[in-house]
């Protein structure tokens, strides 16, 4: 069984996103970038499956400009076997639908039976790509998973999904796509020896244009704004009674 792990390079989640007023975009020049934390969890899960002997190969895929290679190198250093880099022009604003179409192409080509990916990327917070991908290639889908168990015969997986009302357990026939949630595992570090070794692992580069996928944007970002912390007009109170009556009036109790 081949596992494909799509990974995304995003602004480091602990870095404050800042808006460049002139370009009306989030300013990423010289900003610290990192692998999307949900993708790290996906990589970890794929590696655990491979280590248990149930997978033949793990392949990380990422789409982006040259810098994206760093993120693929991180995946390789964590332990993924090889990487596919889909190279784009710098200006391209790829949306989940495009990404799903590109990934669909690669998954078909690789004949991968399992796709493990993050439930969302912490930059655009769309939470869509895995779902869309499953729609395009008609793989079964398990979103927001916090537990993953491959059946003994290797034809299906049992997943626990973290949903609003609790935890749903489902059985997914392979081929399948799962999107992972935070509690699934704790990703390993890319250790220094492994970073060194990762340099000689295979990385294939594919020009996006060679795939013939229409990437014209469906959504245009008109403007962006930092939400910031706004001061509120505060009212002084001085007793429990007053507090409860205010809260009742505001309808929040």
């Amino acid at each position: 069984m081949k596992i494909i792990i799509p990974v995304k390079r995003v602004l480091d989640p602990y870095t404050q996103a800042r808006v460049n007023k002139q370009t009306q975009q989030v300013d990423l020049t010289n900003a610290k970038m990192a692998m999307n934390p949900f993708c790290e969890i996906a990589v970890e899960e794929a590696l655990t499956i491979k280590e248990s002997g149930s997978a033949s190969e793990t392949i990380a895929v990422s789409i982006g400009t040259d810098k994206t290679v760093d993120t693929l190198r991180t995946a390789l250093a964590m332990g993924v076997d090889r990487a596919i880099f889909i190279k784009t022009d710098s200006e391209l604003d790829l949306q989940p639908l495009h990404v799903a179409k590109i990934l669909a192409n690669i998954i078909k080509r690789e004949e991968a039976e399992l796709v493990i990916m993050g439930k969302q990327a912490v930059d655009n917070d769309n939470n869509q790509t895995g779902q869309m991908l499953s729609g395009l290639i008609d793989y079964s889908l398990g979103t927001f998973i916090s537990k993953f168990d491959l059946s003994a015969d290797g034809t299906s997986v049992e997943v626990c999904r973290e949903i609003d009302s609790g935890i749903e357990t489902r059985q997914l026939g392979l081929p399948a796509i799962v999107t992972v949630d935070l509690r699934l595992n704790e990703p390993r570090y890319a250790s220094l020896p492994n970073i060194m070794k990762a340099r000689s692992k295979p990385m294939e580069t594919i020009e996006l244009s060679s795939l013939g996928i229409d990437t014209s944007p469906r959504i245009k970002i008109v403007s962006v704004e930092e939400s910031g912390t706004k001061d509120r007009a505060s009212k002084q109170i001085s007793s429990a009674e007053e507090l409860f009556s205010e809260l009742n009036q505001m309808g929040v109790l």
């Binding site: 989940p96 917070d125 927001f144």
Partner: peptide
Amino acid sequence: STFSKNILPRVGALLDVQPIS
């Protein structure tokens, strides 16, 4: 919700539409 976020993007893909979250 996790309900709609599970389903709607997949509908979007079937309709060739880019959903908005």
